[in-house]
Amino acid sequence: MSGETLSGPVALDTSSELSRRAGLWRRLSRDKVAAGAAIIMTVVILAAIFAPIVSPFDPYFTDLTKVMQPPNEINWLGTDSTGRDILSRLIYGSRNTMMMGLVGVVFGGFLGGFLGIIAAFYRRLDGWIMRIVDVMLAFPAILIGLAVAAIAGAGITAVVIALVVATIPDVARVARGAAIGVMEQEFMEAGRALGVSDFTLIWRYLTLNCISTIFVFLTLRFGQIILIGSALSFLGMGAQPPTAELGMMAAQGRDFLFMAPHIATIPSLAIFVIVLSANLLGDAIRDVLDPRLQQ
């Protein structure tokens, strides 16, 4: 079968893929804001990956002789209410917060993309799948987080489940829309006529042609997902002490807001910077990869 010999997606030539990547670099070199966002994101991701190496102190080491110290030359961002170094906790906290968002977006994107593509391919399942998706949309992410935490107990798992469930319906809709567009292409009909199996049609013909749309959508969602995750942690539904997590660190600092405002302000500011960079970078990626999503 001719389709089986292809390794890449059908009807998507690789040169356009290369030019898109070049387009992203060109955009980043011209757009200072997007470039700044890309640099910040790179630094945050590297710091998160190499947290044990780059963090100056042990994020869990308490020192009651120097509690709530403002930023100084030893503890660059000061210390918290139990004398832990805030910079080190911030690095580990970004690691946990970003991981939470990433797992939420990746799993939610995978499940949502699967549902959307299946709905577009098997039209008789469409009504059912989209109805389930609509019901899922009826639950705001924070509510899902509260419900999961009520059932399973508060913890990072509860937040991740909430983030996955919150990502699924939107991705399913976007994937379905993109897949329906691809379904109308002639090569789908040609593949069917050749007797290509459903699995190959769905994976090689449909999924690989929708993947950039789904990817762009997920990069745009990443910031929102981090905001929801940190809000749930702030409410006490997520990571439990002493784990370093940005939302929870902000919540803990709230008790000392008037004595040592930096304990709550610094993690909040960190979330803001991460989400802002993610949003700006997502916008740039969208403009280059999938300008149709701009609306």
Partner: peptide, 16 residues
């Protein structure tokens, strides 16, 4: 910037 701001950050600043 507003879309990227955690709501509790705004609240913390206003309270403070």
């Amino acid at each position: 910037a507003g879309v990227s701001m955690p709501i509790f950050f705004i609240g913390l600043l206003l309270i403070q």
